[in-house]
Design a protein around this nucleic acid. Structure first.
Lengths: 334, 334
DNA sequence: CTGAAAGCGCTTACAG
DNA sequence: CTGAAAGCGCTTACAG
């Protein structure tokens, strides 16, 4: 492996000049620059990042904790990880993966990775309602950015990027309304979920704006499963005033709705328009396809990295992004 | 941030002694060791890994390329990544994620990461039939280990860990036979897949051993989709001699089989026993649950890391592991 | 525009 | 068992 010194000797300049050729090429005379570059090429020189990091005390590595218990929320994990990785690379950085116990028990791991300079900072995801990680990192002035807000806090502890769930629900209601639905139900989660309440509010507000009923049209599911989604849908159908549209809080609940409609001999789309959230891989493989609100993963990842690396001081460090309604057969009018 | 030097000053020893306290504590007198450890604790000292890596030229980071095009194979990606990460950590290492173009186009990325000392080596997965990465890395003497064999090569270019697909199929056949099935079909892929031929061979051999028929019982699906699995199952049922057992090459094809059986009014399990491969998350949420061959992810990850880090020179650097048959309702006798 | 020199924080023969 | 010193490969004021 060639070193800076060897390149310098080969190009007959000082090491400083070679370093400048790499990091501040404008400081060199064009002919010197070209000569140095030729030597770099010839010797196949690659700067040693450890040496660089030791000097600059920046490792250009971003820590990300791989979730321990894969649940339904993680159906889009692969997409997120890939997008995050790609975004990091556009700024010359990489993602370092680690595992850690949940919540505050895991904080020593974060602390250690930062203190030993394995990472410059962290991207947090799987944010929970009273997530303690944010405050902990903030107190210690460890750089981080969160994908997802910490709900039920008056002020957000630190920068974040999130998707506007209320706007998403509103888009779904609007779409179902435009395809002729007039009784649009909402399949949700228990009240403890900040994310759930956000999406519920969007549904309620848009329904009200459009003059649609909301009474008796909310069913809260105990857990995020297909069975619960099916059960809730059955409850709505049996209520005497069945809905002609269903906005589900998740793709999983929506899949349950589709199954129940099928079991009842109803056609998703023609009879009841159904939408989900997250556009998970399964949304596109079921038949009919599930209309769903896609999280703009590339944009999320780009914003997270931009905030963490401070490359965009022009944008606020709180970014609420709009989801995109991906329309498929489950909401197609008959 | 405290440095070695500061700890040394505080403990009134040389930096060498502090370094030894960390890396070779047996060299210190017990009382000195304790004094040094007290100073380390007090100053909350953490060794700077960049400085260490610069000296030792080992970064203790392992590169792993995040797959670009999430397909069905990646349903178990999350599990693998988590297991890999955990295994790396037990030896003080971490996973560095990166993106790269497919096949040989991506090799400069691997080369660059290694040359700049961002990683010590690589774990390869998503191995393809004529995967060029292995030979390329081997030629350049860049450390790597592969999850999955390079099929259709006479000798494997480098160390690998894989799951025995033939043994898996044989286990599935055995299980279906023990639950009373006597005509066991196989749902496969096109011949181009080495992995597919391996699993097919296991089915054929065990059927023959048990005196079961194999003629007319293989259907090759053009692609790994639920629709193709359903179509192939329909073909088998309509063949005049319908099977009472189906070994599917993947969970996806198996799910197609389950759907088709349901559409025909047949009960999976009681009427036709069905098994899949990989025990993907969906295997446990369908009803009846899908019997499937689980890849031993933790073991795979542990072996990969052990081989790559050379911590176990006692084991060969080629490890063929057995999958585990997870029995669910889809193979329960009536 | 270019160069000599110090130093980032460690580890490791080597000497005592 | 302990210590003084060199050096890993870079970057960065500073001087010319």
């Amino acid at each position: 492996m060639a070193t800076l010194k060897q390149v310098a000797a080969h190009a007959e300049v000082s090491v400083q000049t070679v370093s400048n050729a790499l990091n501040a090429p404008h400081r060199l005379r064009p002919d010197t620059l070209e000569r140095v570059n030729r030597s770099i090429e010839l010797l196949n020189y690659r700067p040693n990042r450890n040496a660089r990091s030791l000097r600059t005390s920046a490792v250009e590595l971003i820590g990300y904790c791989v979730p321990s218990w894969p649940n339904q929320t993680h159906l889009v994990m692969d997409q997120f990880l890939h997008a995050l990785c790609a975004a990091a690379e556009t700024s010359g950085r990489h993602i370092l993966l680690f595992t850690a116990p949940a919540a505050v028990d895991g904080m020593p791991t974060y602390d250690d990775l930062h203190a030993r300079r394995l990472v410059d900072g962290f991207v947090l995801s799987q944010t929970e309602t009273h997530d303690p990680r944010h405050g902990w990192l903030k107190d210690r002035q460890i750089p981080f950015v969160s994908f997802g807000r910490v709900w039920k806090e008056t002020t957000q502890p630190g920068p974040w990027v999130d998707v506007d769930g209320a706007a998403g629900s509103a888009m779904a209601v609007q779409h179902l309304h435009e395809t002729g639905r007039r009784r649009i139900a909402f399949l949700g989660w228990p009240q403890s979920s900040g994310l759930g309440e956000d999406r519920l509010a969007g549904w309620r507000d848009r329904c009200t704006e459009l003059g649609l009923p909301t009474g008796g049209l909310v069913v809260r599911c105990a857990e995020d499963t297909i069975d619960e989604g099916a059960r809730a849908t059955a409850q709505l159908i049996d209520s005497g005033q069945p809905p002609d549209g269903i906005v589900a809080l998740s793709d999983i609940l929506a899949l349950g709705a589709l199954r129940q409609l099928g079991d009842r001999g109803l056609t998703a789309g023609a009879d009841v328009g159904v939408t989900g959230f997250d556009d998970s891989p399964r949304a596109s493989v079921v038949s009919p396809g599930l209309t769903s609100l896609r999280q703009p993963m590339e944009q999320i990842a780009t914003e997270l990295i931009a905030i963490l690396t401070g490359t965009r001081n022009d944008v606020p460090s709180e970014r609420l992004l709009l989801p995109e309604l991906v329309i498929r057969g489950s909401s197609a009018p008959g």
